[in-house]
Design a protein around this nucleic acid. Structure first.
Lengths: 212, 212
DNA sequence: AGCAAAAGTTTCCTATAGGAAATTTTTGTT
DNA sequence: AACAAAAATTTCCTATAGGAAACTTTTGCT
């Protein structure tokens, strides 16, 4: 990390050092939980005493956890998580074993996606310069105004996440009653179940879609 | 409960019952780790003996964990996670047993997601009542104003799609120059590459994130 | 039903986690 | 540099997790 916070003590600085180094090494098992906890605590400028009050764990216990002298019980871990507001996946994330750098990145500017019009929808495919993606993201303008415009359910493999960017629309699905969705609403569903969207707002509704 | 798998013992049947009932609650507070582990093991049709071989934990230990007689240490939890191929969200979400359901649907109204604050971001998890999802969608408010606030890169498995809902921000990645993103811009990247977001607009930037 | 095998639970013991207080290290001030 | 205050670590003790084996319950035959 470019610019080091300068409120750190020497030992902590060292801790961050080690933490950083271990990232690249990708050691398999040890799973440096302690170093992560310490890094998180320091990032919030907490002393062990303060962290102790927040988590309900003894000062000494926290110290031992951070120094990897003990393996905390699951209840202790949840106390940590709640007391310090830690992101759980990050705690469990294993340092990568298979040296697969995989540092791909693709940015698409607003409106610069790849257009893909259909009779009912107007899709704009996003991040298309990256191939072999697990997910397919696209932004869609919904032209349809009545359900009749669909000759049949849309149906395909996988799962789909839908987020309403603007406008309002009716979300039809094969096995459920239609639901009206408004800006900020989201839906997640199996795409093998028939589905269709119809704008209900003055202007065409716009949605963000991600398929996997 | 029309057609229950018939290879289950009475007690297991009960376990699944409880499991299923608690699905609607979807809180991570009481955290009935044991019941989840049992449900996951049963969904893979494993006996304690087999699970023991896979995880390296004693049969008796597994039994105690499942019956919530002990709180496993962190090392034990990681053994579980790896041995049974549990992914972390699954531990905190609810698994399903038998055949894969194909007609699922879950709608989250604007602002009604499940809050998950961290020091740097304020996440709102979306569509959390559906479990076993391929993708994890969430809406995030970016508090950070300087890169220093991160003690370390954020890094985890999988791929991530990012869409800027409002405001502007700097998108830092380990192997690239930082890029400023504005409303409507999107990015797709490998999460094993370190990444971090910093708001550059007056108000906190808001992004939509989908991980898979 | 009655039996044998398989699966799950409990017991008992050892290793280790967690807490209170003593000790050591670090930090800031003069 | 020397000291006092603050923070972190270590010690020592009790509570509890983890494993091996005994025990109990469930399953699947005939």
């Amino acid at each position: 990390m470019a610019d080091e916070p300068h409120f750190l003590k020497e030992q902590d600085r060292k801790a961050l050092e080690v933490e950083r180094r271990s990232e690249t090494e990708a050691t398999l098992e040890p799973l440096q939980l302690g170093q992560r906890v310490r890094a998180i605590r320091l990032s919030q400028n907490l002393t062990l005493e303060e962290a102790s009050k927040r988590t309900g764990l003894a000062r000494s216990t926290l110290s031992k956890i951070e120094n990897e002298q003990i393996s905390p019980t699951f209840t202790a871990v949840t106390k940590l998580v709640h007391g310090l507001g830690i992101d759980i996946p990050q705690l469990f994330a294993q340092p990568r074993s298979g040296a697969k750098p995989a540092g791909r990145r693709d940015i698409t500017r607003s409106g610069e996606g790849k257009p893909h019009p259909t009779p009912t929808y107007e899709h704009e495919l996003l991040n298309t310069s990256l191939t072999q993606k697990k997910m397919v993201p696209f932004r869609t303008r919904v032209h349809t105004r009545t359900f009749d415009e669909f000759t049949d359910w849309i149906r395909h493999d996988g799962e789909e996440f839908l987020y309403v960017l603007s406008g309002s629309l009716l979300f039809y699905t094969e096995f459920y009653e239609p639901v009206e969705l408004f800006e900020g609403d989201s839906a997640y569903y199996d795409c093998t179940m028939g589905h269709a969207l119809v704008s209900t707002s003055e202007v065409d509704a716009e949605v963000l879609w991600v398929t996997a």
